[in-house]
Nucleic acid binder design. Structure first.
Lengths: 151, 151
DNA sequence: TATTGTTATACTCTATAACTATA
DNA sequence: TATAGTTATAGAGTATAACAATA
């Protein structure tokens, strides 16, 4: 992307603009932090979805993440190729694949979560810890209870 | 995109996930709000950049928005086709195009800004006005002073 | 018939490279 | 030579449609 000279005052107030650029910056910080561990931001999302939970089918994992099952196929192909995830046919329903983290996957996830936390810390550097918590809380409410009032 | 069943607790805390989904929701609300006025979210960004300011070249406008000049060409093609923006060669440097809102463009912008404000109001419904202001302020600091401490 | 995983394909958004006209 | 606008092209990311295996 071209260098951003900074928008006029109209755009600096604009929520879509602010959210998009904040998301892009956070995504770049995360990508850099994950690179040493050989995974990308979306792959961390998949691994977090698979972690600490009863085994899941590809479709269930995709629904959790809010992505299409065809998108999940490509993500799992990559993670399986790196030896971080395994796929087995489900004995109870052989149409399904049971997807799980491998041992290497759990270890990579542990390191990646620490790297992610550090990237978030850098992202939040310019605001106070209290403001950072309010930011996270406000986004959670907006994303997960978009129709409710407060919690 | 597939229906989102909701992620596990790990992802609900994840800033990239929260920012991405918040941005997508805000973008959808804005797109719906702008549809009656015949423009898209990115086109509103271009028009806001061109508004209330001395005339600008395409390249200057692109740099303000942080997009490539080739991307700006397509955006301006669309806006010019709708009669909302005009392009004229710059008399002082005929390599440049001076880009300006037309009268219709200024009127559409006025209506679009009101629609955008209403979309933001809907987006922010689940949080208090005070939290909403803190959210906007925190994002501004993070996006525009990513290396500074507080303001 | 319906569902799961898969493949092929297409669409959106954006960038890079190369062309043109001007400087 | 360098720059502004343009065009052609390519890549990333994602979705839809169609197919095989299974239910």
């Amino acid at each position: 992307m071209a260098r951003n000279d900074g928008p006029g005052p109209e755009l600096r107030e604009n929520l879509v603009y602010l959210l998009k650029h904040a998301q892009q910056r956070m995504a770049e910080l995360l990508a850099d932090a994950l690179k040493p561990h050989g995974i990308e931001g979306r792959e961390l999302g998949v691994m977090l979805t698979l972690a600490g939970r009863e085994p899941m089918s590809q479709q269930q994992a995709a629904q959790r993440l809010g992505i299409d099952r065809t998108t999940m196929v490509a993500l799992l192909d990559a993670l399986e190729g790196k030896g971080l995830v395994s796929r087995h046919p489900d004995a109870d329903d052989r149409r399904r694949n049971v997807v799980e983290l491998t041992g290497a996957g759990r270890e990579t996830l542990r390191l990646a979560m620490a790297a992610s936390a550090e990237a978030e810390r850098v992202f939040l550097t310019p605001v106070s810890p209290r403001t950072a918590q309010e930011l996270r809380g406000a986004l959670q409410v907006i994303v997960f209870q978009p129709d409710g009032r407060d919690s």
